[in-house]
Every structure is written in C-alpha cells, then in structure tokens.
Design a binder for these strands. Structure first.
Length: 474
RNA sequence: GACCCCUUCGUCUAUCGGUGAGGACUCAAGAUUUUCAUUCUUGCAAGAGGGGUUCAACUCCCCUAGGGGUCGCCA
C-alpha cells in the first residue's frame, strides 16, 4: 500500500481557527495511526488577506499543542519549499501546460465586467458562471493583448456535459454535473495561483495520499479532479470532514463564537482538554470512553469512524472536560501552566505554591480561576457585614479563643494533629456544625466556604494562622 | 434560485436488520463532605414525517420536510 501522506494547509490570516485545529488534529492522528507523514503547508496565495507574523504564530500554536508535523516550513523535508509563495514558478509552469493542452485559457475580463455579467445572470435566474467570452478570442488577439501588457488571468476550461463521480472516504459515492462548475481562475492577475491550482500541484508533488479538509470544499472537488485528469496525475483519496457548527447550526464563525484556538488558551483552557474535546467533534470510537490523551487518540483514530453530520461546538462540555484535566494532570504541570496568571511573589515559595494549586484545582474549571482561589492565602477576603457580626458573636469568639490556644503547640503541617484538636474543640466547647467551623474559616480566609482546616492551615503556615486568628478576636 | 451534503435525547455521540435504543455533558433529586468543590447514585430526555423491502427496520430503498455547504482574480 502507498505510504499515507496528509497535509494541513492553512492560510496565514491571523490565528488558528477551531475548525482548522480539528482538521490539523485529524491529519496528525491519521498520519500517526497509519505510520505515515503529516505535512504542514502554508497557503499564502492571497496577498490581500495575509497577516504579518501569522505563519510563525500558526506554527507556534500547533507546536505548543503538541501537534508536530513531519514536514513543513520550519522542519523542512524533501518536498519543500512548504510555503506556496515560494513555489510560484511551479504553478505558472503547470498553468501554461494546461493552456498548451487546451485545458485552460487566458481571460482579460475586468472585475467590473464580471460583476456585471453575474448580475445579468442572476436577473435571468441562471446558474452564475463565467460565460467564456474570452475563450472565443483568436490566438492572435490573445497574443497581442498579452504583449500589450493587458491584465489577465488564466482560467481552467471545465468539460461540458460531464458527470463527475468520486468516492469520498467519509461521504461515500458523490456525483456532480460539470454544468455546476465554473471555469475557475487558476492564475490571478497578480501572477499568484488560486487555491485550486496551488493545492492540486502541491498535493501531487508532495505525494499527498489523502486530502483531508472541511466539507465546504466538497462542491469544488470536481474542479480538482478535473485538474488531476488534465495534468495526467493520479488523484488522492478525498476526505471531507463534517463542519463544526455554531449553536444555530450554521458554520462556526467568529460572529457567534470565539473561534481562535489562541484565545481559548489565553482564557486558560488546557491543551489536553481542547484536543480531546475537538477530536470528539466528528469522530468517536466504538466504546463509551470520553477522555483521551493525544497518544491514545493516535492509537484509536480511524477515518471510517468520522461522522457525516456537522457538530455543534458546545462550550459546556469543554468546560467539564477542562475541569477533568485540571484535576487529573500532574500537579506540577498545572502549577507550571498556571504560573503566568500569578503574581511572581505568589509563586516564589514553590512548595507552598504547589499546596495552593493542589487545593485550588479541585475547585477550578479554568487556569486563571486558580489565582482567584489562591488570593485568600495571601490576603483574607474582606468580610461582609453579616459575616462580621457572626464572627463577633460570643460563641464564635469562644471557638477562636480555644483554637488559638490549642494550635500554639502544634505543627501546621501536621494534618492529623489539627484534626484531633478540631474534634476535641467540638467536644470541649459543645459547639458544632456551622457555629464551629464557620468562625474559623471566616477568620482564616475571610469566607465561609473553602478547603478543609488542615489544608488551610498547612498553606497559611503557623505564624500566619495565629496572626489571622488573633486578628479576628476582640 | 441551482447543485451537493446531512438528519438518534437540548448538545457530543453508540448502534453496522432482532436492544427495555447505551454512554457523556447540561439540568433535577439524593448520598458522601464541618462548608464549598470533588466523587457516587438515581432521574428527565431521542430515531423529522410518509411510503416501501423484510418474519423483523433507527439501521436498506424512495418521496417529502427541515437544516447546512457551495456558487469570488478568498481559502
């Protein structure tokens, strides 16, 4: 069997789209699963849309997520260059070849002419497509206008009355009539190729075995198939992934959702959760398992379990999953990832910082929430009036007084000893439940709810514990 | 509008002709916990509609409806 080679081919227009992440991930998983190669190719053929630095940030984001490509602009490889703007000659060469074979032609129509033509077709209720007026130009006239330096494009001549049929790996057999395909522009007037030409040429030379892309490409697949035929190349296998959807079931867009992967990372989502969650949007193994690491996904992934229907991007489940990873990942991993949200002084004492993260991760969904939970250990939360009154009550003061005395002879890290005196206090004072615990928690952290006493005291340390207890006494 | 794709709980999904249609998220109730969180248990909730084929259809076929995608010198 032919070696599996797939490519992820984003345009450097600013950020990694959630849909792009899913495609990149499936490319990666499929390649790994099949012991094939995953190629990263930058499709920067639209000079108007290109954003400076986008390529670098795209590569960095993918790398940070652990999705590393075998070949690409930064890693190199034997099929480079992997940036389309560096392969312009190759595209032009094949466009010319198509013209020579009679499969493509020069077109001098201006955008104004074209839009007028389209308006008329629209008004007539016709299928909107190029009317081929430049195909009728004589060779002499074409050459004359070319020599005169007239702006022009090169168009692909689609066949008439042709039935395109192909087998899509997820959709099965798909058929389309050539009458629905426009004479696509192959080379733009600025000399750059369009996606259709560039991708086809590159996929061929990079020996791509499976073209994995979003369903939005399904209807232009006939154009690509035709290009392969005209160029005399063998077409790859087609894999059109279901779309990721907005809540209203339209294609996921930034109008309705945050769609940039970077922004989810900035919000404090963990890459493990993001990857796990996105992997399950459109693919699912046969069993009921929900939690998968990247490695496990590589092991389990297969194209034949990719769904046909689009999947709504549901943050609620992502949040749940993130919480799962907040608790299950190694403590130091969470601690390191959370660091950027913490003031430097809060992490100086690393052992103490770890204790804080350990307590806080149980109660957090996103990374920045850890900082909020940590706050109470550096400065008690300000008491609200009711809590203040509660703390002033006679029984509360008794608890505080007693606890303060008992604690003096105890090690703050000795959880067992703390539990012992805590229980002893209940017996001794005859105060229990919220009347016992609330004053202590209020005095120690300024709020009625939170971690258990040994945890709080262990983090605070003995000195600080005594100070806070003392400060609450009147 | 034309063409193409899609259709199981609110959401992500399992099921590849024979199931009380399963799991997860959400939500509700309960248990655990001094509290919060976690965790556990239970519950609510689905085959778009109509025809076929078959002893048997969520599963195969057809029609209808609904949703989506595409129709750029953007990808």
């Amino acid at each position: 069997m032919k070696e599996v080679r797939v490519r992820f081919a984003p345009s450097p227009t600013g950020y990694l789209h959630i849909g792009g992440l899913r495609t990149a991930l499936y490319d990666f998983l499929f390649a790994r699963n099949q012991s094939g190669k995953a190629v990263l190719r930058i499709e920067d053929t639209d000079q108007n849309r290109e954003v400076k630095g986008a390529t670098e940030s795209l590569i960095a984001t993918l790398h940070n997520l652990g999705i590393d490509f075998d070949e690409g602009p930064e890693t190199g490889g034997e099929y480079g260059p992997y940036i389309q703007s560096q392969r312009l000659d190759l595209y032009r060469q094949h466009a010319l070849e198509l013209i020579n074979k009679g499969h493509a032609y020069y077109c001098f129509c201006s955008t104004a002419t074209l839009s007028q033509m389209r308006e008329e077709q629209q008004a007539e209720g016709e299928f909107v497509k190029y009317d081929r007026r430049c195909l009728k130009l004589s060779k002499e006239e074409v050459n004359a206008r070319l020599n005169a330096g007239e702006p022009h494009v090169i168009r692909l001549k689609m066949p008439d009355n042709y039935r395109f049929a192909f087998d899509d790996e997820v959709r099965g057999h798909v058929q389309m009539d050539s009458s629905q395909s426009d004479d696509q522009v192959l080379i733009k007037s600025d000399g750059f190729p369009t996606y259709h030409l560039a991708a086809t040429v590159d996929d061929h030379y990079m020996q791509i075995s499976h073209v994995i892309r979003g369903e939005e490409w399904l209807s232009s697949t006939p154009k690509h198939i035709w290009l392969y035929e005209c160029l005399g190349w063998e077409a790859p296998k087609w894999v059109h992934l279901p779309l990721i959807l907005n809540t209203d079931r339209s294609k996921l867009s930034k109008r309705m959702h945050d769609v940039s992967v970077e922004s989810y990372i900035q919000k404090g989502y963990l890459k493990e959760a993001l990857i796990n969650f996105v992997a399950l949007l459109g693919w699912h193994p046969a069993d009921d398992r929900e939690l998968y690491s990247l490695e496990e996904l590589c092991e389990a992934f297969s194209l034949d379990r990719v769904n046909k229907a689009g999947a709504v991007f549901d943050l609620t489940k992502l949040d749940w999953m993130n919480g799962q990873y907040m608790r299950s990942l190694p403590l130091h991993t969470i601690a390191d990832r959370a660091k950027q949200w913490f003031p430097p002084q809060w992490t100086e004492d690393y052992q103490r910082y770890l204790k804080i993260i350990s307590a806080a991760r149980e109660r957090s969904t996103l990374l920045p929430e850890l900082t909020e939970y940590a706050r109470i250990f550096f400065k008690p939360a300000p008491l609200n009036p009711e809590d203040k009154d509660f703390l002033l009550a006679e029984s509360s003061q008794k608890v505080l007084q007693w606890y303060l005395q008992q604690l003096t002879g105890i090690d703050a890290d000795d959880a067992e000893a703390i539990n012992t005196i805590t229980k002893a206090g209940i017996k001794e004072l005859g105060i229990k439940g919220k009347y016992y615990y609330m004053p202590l928690r209020l005095a120690l952290i300024g709020q009625a709810h939170g971690p258990d006493l040994p945890t709080i005291i262990g983090i605070l340390g003995k000195d600080e514990t005594l100070i806070r207890l003392g400060a609450a006494r009147h």
